[in-house]
C-alpha cells in the first residue's frame, strides 16, 4: 500500500519544485488527501491539473489508493497582501 511519504515522493518527482502535502485520512493508507501546488499547472484547467496528478500516481489509482481528496494550485493563495509562507520544504 503506498503510504503518504511514498506518494509524496512520487509527486515531488513528477512535479519538481512543487509543494506537496499528503495525509492519510483514515490510517489505512488507502484514503488519502493531497495538496499539490505546482508551477507546472499554469494554464491548465482544474480537470487537466488533476489528470496530471493521476497520471503521476499511475497504477496506484487503479486500486491501492481507494480514494484521493485532491487539491491542486499553481501558486500559493495570496492572503493579506503577501505571499503565504510555503510549508517546510523537507
Amino acid at each position: 500500500m503506498p503510504n503518504p511519504a511514498v506518494v509524496r515522493a512520487r509527486l515531488l518527482e513528477a512535479f519538481p519544485g512543487a509543494r506537496v502535502d499528503v495525509t492519510d485520512l483514515t490510517g489505512t493508507e488507502d484514503h488519502l488527501q493531497a495538496v499539490v501546488v505546482a508551477a507546472q499547472f499554469a494554464g491548465k484547467s482544474r480537470i487537466d491539473q488533476h489528470k496530471m496528478v493521476y497520471a503521476a500516481l499511475g497504477d496506484w489509482m487503479a486500486g491501492p489508493i481507494h480514494a484521493l481528496a485532491l487539491t491542486t494550485r499553481t501558486s500559493e493563495p495570496e492572503s493579506n497582501g503577501g505571499n503565504r509562507e510555503i510549508g517546510d520544504g523537507a
Partner: peptide, 21 residues
C-alpha cells in the same frame, strides 16, 4: 473520460469533474 475515480459528473454532455472539482 481518462478519469480513474468516481463519482463523475457530466453536464450537457461534458465532463465537469469528480468530487473535489
Amino acid at each position: 473520460s481518462n478519469w480513474p475515480t468516481y463519482p463523475q459528473l457530466y453536464v450537457d454532455g461534458k465532463f465537469v469533474g469528480g468530487c473535489d472539482i
